[in-house]
Amino acid sequence: MFQTILSRIFWILLLTFLQVVIFNHVHILGYATPLPYIYALLILPSNTPRWLYILIGFCLGLCIDTFTNTPGIAAAATTASGLVVPWFLVAFGPKDLGDDDTLRPNHHTMKWGPFLRYAFCAVTLQCTLFFTIEAFSFFAPLDLLFNILGSIVLTMIFIVILELIRNER
């Protein structure tokens, strides 16, 4: 239990660090910026209370905001993701799970297909919210769309890489 918590905290800190140091400086073609820190929410076990999802989302977002000088943007987006991600997990997770069973989402427990769909939904939501709040208007809708689509693709790539790294130890 304690180890799980430590592991989660480690992942959160690691993702924050990676985001701040590496991912935020990625601007492929000026548009696509990966936001793989959402991975920290995706890997929470299914018995996590929903308020904790939201709180973790908020704290994660706030950390990112603090170090990337975007106060509130990531926090708002990630908090909203924290509200919705558990529903995605129920929707895409295995249906034959008992009430007491705890699902630890990864590509072993969920198979690649459902896990990628689960991740894709969450990432789409996160990227859409993040870039919409950042733009805060639909002044340049096409730019916004390219931003979101490119970031979704890039974030999915990095989430797959992280998933492989985490579970192939």
């Binding site: 308020w51 999802y53 106060p71 509130g72 908090t79 924290g82």
Partner: peptide, 22 residues
């Protein structure tokens, strides 16, 4: 639905930060 109130509260904090510091 306690998580929903947590969500509302934290979103409010986020937006306050957003409007305050951007």
């Amino acid at each position: 639905y306690n998580y929903f109130f947590v969500f509302i509260l934290l979103e409010a904090v986020s937006f306050v930060l957003l409007f305050r510091f951007n």
